[in-house]
Design a protein around this nucleic acid. Structure first.
Lengths: 338, 338
DNA sequence: TTCCCCCGTCGAAGCGCTTCGACGTCACCC
DNA sequence: GGGTGACGTCGAAGCGCTTCGACGGGGGAA
């Protein structure tokens, strides 16, 4: 293993000069810097991560806690993770993967052993048990999602409330008067997952404001569940013409079910979704949707953390405004009753 | 931050004794060990990861390289990742997440900086460019998947060749004489992804051996592609009664397509798959399948690495035997022609 | 009773890096 | 021409832990 003293000798300078030349933390003459860099390159010098962490009390590693729960859409989680890793690398950091299984103890462990400099949490609950811990930790953190009480913490997410509203407004503009929300599986609401509840709030508020009749239906993931919900929807709201889907797993089966029940999309029924753009755009009937910008969220989360690590103040809440893309699944309400 | 000297003082022993007491690397009297443990507990002592890594040249971190490519099934990747993390934690290790985007340079970086002790690679190609690098690294590694030339390296995976064979044998036993394999998207074969090709080999070999007529069809992920493949299958092999699906994304759409084309599963067509058990079992028609044991593979990969880290010899190749579970989608061939 | 060995513990060195204070040199200004 | 910074570099300390050799004391064997 080649170490800093080897580079120093090779470049004819002291180890500290090598350190400064490579880190840029003190001015070093152009000439010396070039010599050091070349020495480092020809020797293949790689600073020892542990030594560096010990001396600088910075590990250049971020922790990412991913959810394992039922009812969450795995590809979305993966997208977050990948964008976090990519963004972290741009800032010269690596990412340690933690599962929620490890719980608070895991967070405390990686923070207290100085394995990581900072933490990113996904799948935040309204009353998340990890909040007090995060506050007490001496390391910065960012949550992807909003708990109810986030004082002193930093959160970022799509503005799900606004997303719910946006979908309803779009349907209202098209003339629809009776709408329904097909949401996540019941357990997601039961455990108080913030984003799911916010969509419901936004959906309901916007519907009330616009004077629409509305209903909310949680829905399990299997296609059969989608079919059942579709039937129930039509039974309970015979005049239904607008549907908002906030559940990646059932989006396609649900549309299939509607069509099998004799409803054309968008002829008889307009469907909008809150989901990743690729999913909405890739369906047989491309679906009008509010995008779930996982890549952007992951990226911004990392940037927030970096600023916190630099000691800068950051906004406690970052809500990304929803962007609705019109596709083939929504159309003005047909005036003639069916 | 509480350090080892604090614990030592509190327990009335020297720092080295604390170290030995906690690590068990030298015999320490019962009495002393208890005092040390209690001191550590009451003070909330957490050894500094960097310091430990520097002194012991062990970081207790594994690198996991996950694929980002098109055509791979994301939930499967996630399952691997989770099982690797869980298994690693059981061995007191953490997991650093790398994306394939970082490439060989990323591997070299985390290995040479001693950030990680060992590496796990997924999505191995037949001619994987990372092989020489892995051989030259001074750290042990395990590949999930088999390249063509694996001398000196350690690999583990489901025996995909045998899995392909097993599916065909099952169909043959049921009396089917004309079979087809619906595989991964073409790009997966083009880039030489080992497991996909092995399934083809096993499928073809077993079909030849049993004297079955057979054909292989790569298939893109979108449902529309599944439909096209279904039509083509029936056109090109009118006597087709047995299908093997090795493509998680199209399994369900394919069955739908067959049924829409007027074929009942398993009445007219027996379908078997190579995919995660949950997927096969959760479909409308539960599908007979060879399980993709991601959890077991991840776990075993970690165990192999641990043994290598301990300096033990391990087998170069670990092939997990396929296990076929019969479900509703396969039945004996109907004697009467349709 | 003496010698030896082993068990349990200690002290010190050192892992490879960063960082702080200090020092020499040069340029510039009065 | 001497004082004064600023610039560029060096040396040494120290980050918190592990590990190696050494050492004292007690027990068993002779």
């Amino acid at each position: 293993m080649v170490k800093i003293t080897d580079v120093a000798r090779h470049a004819g300078v002291s180890p500290s000069t090598v350190s400064y030349a490579l880190s840029g933390k003190r001015p070093i003459s152009e000439e010396t810097r070039r010599r050091v860099e070349e020495a480092a390159r020809t020797l293949g010098y790689r600073p020892h991560a542990g030594a560096r962490a010990l001396a600088s009390s910075r590990s250049n590693v971020l922790a990412l806690v991913v959810p394992l729960r039922a009812g969450i859409h795995v590809p979305v989680v993966m997208q977050f993770a990948v964008s976090v890793v990519t963004a972290a690398r741009r800032h010269d950091h690596d990412v340690l993967l933690l599962t929620q299984e490890e719980g608070e103890e895991g967070l405390r462990r990686v923070a207290d052993t100085a394995l990581v400099d900072a933490l990113i949490l996904m799948d935040v609950q309204l009353h998340d048990p990890r909040l007090p811990l995060l506050r007490s930790l001496d390391r910065p953190s960012v949550m992807i999602g909003f708990p109810l009480e986030a004082d002193g913490l930093t959160c970022i997410d799509l503005d799900f409330r606004a997303a719910g509203e946006r979908c309803v407004e779009h349907l209202a503009q098209l003339g629809h008067r009776v709408v329904a929300l097909v949401g996540s599986p019941p357990e997601v609401y039961v455990r108080g997952t913030a984003f799911a509840q916010r969509v419901v709030q936004g959906f309901t508020a916007a519907a009330d404001r616009a004077g629409l009749a509305s209903a909310v239906h949680p829905c399990e993931a299997p296609p059969a569940a989608a079919r059942r919900v579709a039937e129930r929807l039509l039974r309970e709201q015979p005049a239904l013409t607008g549907v908002v889907v906030h559940n990646e797993a059932v989006l396609e089966p649900l549309i299939d079910a509607f069509e099998q029940l004799g409803l054309r999309v968008p002829g008889d029924l307009s469907v909008t979704a809150i989901c990743p753009d690729e999913l909405a755009a890739g369906l047989r009937v491309p679906v009008t949707s509010v995008a779930l910008p996982s890549a952007e969220v992951g990226e911004r989360a990392v940037e927030l953390l970096m600023r916190k690590l630099d000691g800068d103040a950051v906004p406690g809440a970052t809500l990304l405004p929803p962007a609705l893309t019109r596709r083939a699944s929504t159309a003005p309400r047909t005036v003639s009753p069916r």
